[in-house]
């Protein structure tokens, strides 16, 4: 790398650094998820006043929904939750069931559901809702690859979230992760229940969560269990299955200091 190019890069990094410090005011407000490794990668927990994306394959929709519900339960802190979804996702993976939500330990009384007919009105509604500081979190549930959700739309949501302090959670089912302004990006798969006696109580939601992108820290992949009684994530007590190591390109903190942007 030539010297001139290196210094140009350094200047650009400096500029990005300055742009990003504006966000830092809100970023201190983080909510611990309960899973210690994930929390340390997230520098203490999931940032409020930001957008987080959760991707999954089509058939993993329910697992990703569970994960998003868990995140929403953590960040919303007894404030109302607005869940925006498009009609199509209900046909594909079923409607969000309030009985099921209650079984996860969350309060259905605080959920207001918006049944948007199409993507445009869903996006517009969530941008509006993210600007309303009475809410704890806004979940936007979208199905499939969506042309309308580009960087501009993503930036709009991020700005709205920063302005109001509301956390935005995007549930993207049957979609490929693409660049966006999200604070974190996850890939979700269902994980097996811990092995053991078939008749022991199995069925607590277990997720294979891969943190694909983390704007302010390393990525990783963990098995996370949702504890319905305490309403938080945790490490599964017995889980001998090997878990994939964190990606090599994002693990050294020194490297991270240089690569904040992107």
């Amino acid at each position: 790398m030539s010297g001139a190019r290196g210094s140009a890069l350094a200047i650009l990094r400096g500029q990005i650094e300055r742009i990003e410090t504006a966000e830092i005011v809100h970023q201190r407000d983080r909510v611990a998820l309960g899973h210690s490794e994930a929390d340390s990668a997230l520098k203490g927990g999931l940032a409020r006043a930001a957008i987080h994306e959760v991707f999954c394959e089509g058939r993993q929709g329910a697992a990703a929904t569970g994960f998003v519900t868990g995140l929403a339960g953590r960040v919303s802190a007894r404030r109302p939750l607005l869940w925006v979804r498009q009609d199509f996702s209900e046909i594909e993976t079923g409607a969000l069931s309030m009985s099921g939500l209650a079984e996860l330990g969350l309060d259905p009384r605080r959920v207001v559901m918006v049944r948007a007919a199409d993507v445009e009105s869903a996006l517009r509604t969530s941008a509006d809702a993210l600007a309303c500081d009475a809410l704890g979190a806004v979940v936007l549930e979208l199905w499939g690859e969506i042309r309308q959700f580009d960087l501009v739309a993503s930036r709009k949501l991020t700005l709205a979230a920063q302005g109001s302090g509301v956390t935005g959670l995007l549930l993207r089912m049957a979609a490929q992760p693409l660049p966006s302004t999200a604070e974190t990006r996850w890939m979700l798969r269902a994980a097996h229940s811990p092995p053991g006696s078939v008749w022991s109580a199995w069925g607590a939601p277990v997720f294979d969560a891969e943190l694909l992108r983390n704007r302010h820290g390393p990525c990783g992949r963990w098995i996370m269990e949702w504890n319905c009684d305490e309403c938080q994530f945790s490490e599964p007590s017995t889980y001998p299955q090997p878990v994939a190591a964190a990606p090599a390109h994002r693990q050294d903190p020194a490297v991270l200091q240089q690569r904040r942007a992107g």
């Binding site: 409607a95 069931s97 009985s99 099921g100 009384r109």
Partner: peptide, 24 residues
């Protein structure tokens, strides 16, 4: 009314007995 509704209380230490996504 929804904010004050009485929902059935879930059983402690049981896994979820109702699914999170329900087909119409």
């Amino acid at each position: 009314a929804a904010m004050q509704a009485e929902w059935p209380v879930r059983t402690e230490s049981e896994p979820p007995l109702r699914p999170l996504r329900l087909f119409d």
